[in-house]
C-alpha cells in the first residue's frame, strides 16, 4: 500500500495535465461533433513554438505562454475558418480527413524544421520535490501542471458561462439554425471556438514540453490520450474531462507500478478499449 501512494499522487496530478490536453478537443467535439484528429499535433506545435522562444530568447517556458497562447488562437481560428468550415456538412468523413491531412502536414513540417531529435522545455522545476512524509514526495512540476490544468478548466467554464461569445458557442452547439436566426454567424463562432480550443492546446503543449520530451511525431500519442480522457469523462463534458484525465492517469501509473514502466502506455490503451467496449458513450456521458 505504501508503495502505491506515490503513483496514486502522481496519477492525480498527471490527470490534471491530461485534462488540459483533452479539454480543447472535448470542447470542439461538443460543438461541431467533430474529433479534431490534428489536436495532438497542434498541441505539439505549441511545444515547438515555446521551444523556439526559449532557445532564441532564453525565456523561461512559463513566459512563452504569453506569446504561444495568442499565436495558437490565430492558428486555430484559421484552421477552422479556412479549412474545416468549408467541409462541414452532412457527412462526417470530409472534416475528419481534412484534419487528418493537417496532422500529416504538421508532423512532417515539424520534422523538416526541427529534425527527429527529442526536445524538451526543461527548467529547474522538473527535479524539485517536496517531501510529504513517509516515502512520498510531491513532484513540484506535476503539481504545477495540475494547478494550471484546473485553472484552465475553470477559466474556460467561466468564459462559456458569462461572455457573449461563450454563450453563442453554446447556443450554436445546442441549435445551429436557432443561433443563426439570432444573428449569430455560426461559422465565425466555430472559428472562435477552435481558436479558444487551441489556446488550451497551447497551454497543454508548453506543460507537456516542460514535463516530458517531445518529437515531431508525438502528437498522435497525445491525441489518443485526449481521446481516452474524452471517452472516459463523457463526450463534451468539462467536469468529466478532469475526472476522465485523473482516471486514465491513475490507471496508467498504478498499472505501471505492477507491470513495469514499459507498460504505462499499453495499460492506458487497454483501459480506453474496455471503456469503449462497455460504455461507448463514456462513464459520465448521457445514455
Amino acid at each position: 500500500m505504501e508503495d502505491l501512494l506515490q503513483p496514486m499522487l502522481n496519477g492525480l496530478l498527471l490527470g490534471g495535465l491530461y485534462a488540459v490536453i483533452a479539454i480543447g478537443m472535448t470542447t470542439m467535439f461538443g460543438i461541431v461533433k467533430l474529433v479534431n484528429l490534428a489536436h495532438g499535433d497542434l498541441m505539439i506545435l505549441g511545444s515547438y513554438l515555446s521551444l523556439v522562444l526559449v532557445s532564441w530568447l532564453g525565456f523561461n517556458p512559463f513566459w512563452t505562454l504569453l506569446a504561444v497562447v495568442p499565436v495558437m488562437f490565430f492558428v486555430g481560428f484559421f484552421v477552422q475558418g479556412f479549412l474545416l468550415n468549408r467541409v462541414l456538412g452532412k457527412e462526417m468523413e470530409p472534416p475528419l480527413l481534412v484534419a487528418f491531412g493537417l496532422s500529416i502536414i504538421l508532423q512532417n513540417l515539424l520534422l523538416l524544421i526541427f529534425t527527429p531529435d527529442a526536445r524538451s522545455l526543461m527548467t529547474d522545476l522538473s527535479i524539485k520535490t517536496i517531501p510529504l512524509g513517509g516515502s512520498v514526495n510531491l513532484p513540484v512540476l506535476y503539481f504545477v501542471d495540475f494547478l494550471i490544468g484546473c485553472a484552465v478548466i475553470l477559466v474556460l467554464h467561466l468564459f462559456f458561462k458569462n461572455t457573449y461569445i461563450g454563450r453563442a458557442i453554446r447556443a450554436a452547439s445546442d441549435d445551429e439554425i436557432g443561433a443563426r436566426l439570432m444573428g449569430i454567424n455560426t461559422k465565425n463562432i466555430y472559428a472562435y471556438a477552435m481558436g479558444i480550443a487551441m489556446m488550451t492546446a497551447a497551454v497543454a503543449g508548453v506543460l507537456v514540453g516542460m514535463t516530458f520530451t517531445f518529437y515531431p511525431h508525438t502528437g498522435p500519442q497525445y491525441l489518443i490520450i485526449a481521446f481516452g480522457v474524452m471517452i472516459i469523462g463523457g463526450l463534451g463534458s468539462m467536469k468529466g474531462c478532469l475526472v476522465g484525465g485523473i482516471i486514465l492517469a491513475e490507471a496508467q501509473l498504478i498499472g505501471a507500478q505492477f507491470a513495469g514502466p514499459g507498460y504505462q502506455l499499453l495499460i492506458g490503451y487497454l483501459v480506453l478499449l474496455i471503456v469503449l467496449g462497455v460504455r461507448p458513450q463514456g462513464i459520465f456521458g448521457k445514455v
Binding site: L83, P94, G101, I105, N108, L109, L112
Partner: peptide
Amino acid sequence: GHVSLLILGIIAITIML
C-alpha cells in the same frame, strides 16, 4: 524523404476542399 508526405498531405487537403 519527409517532404513527400508533406506534399501528399497538402494534395489530399486541396482535393478535399
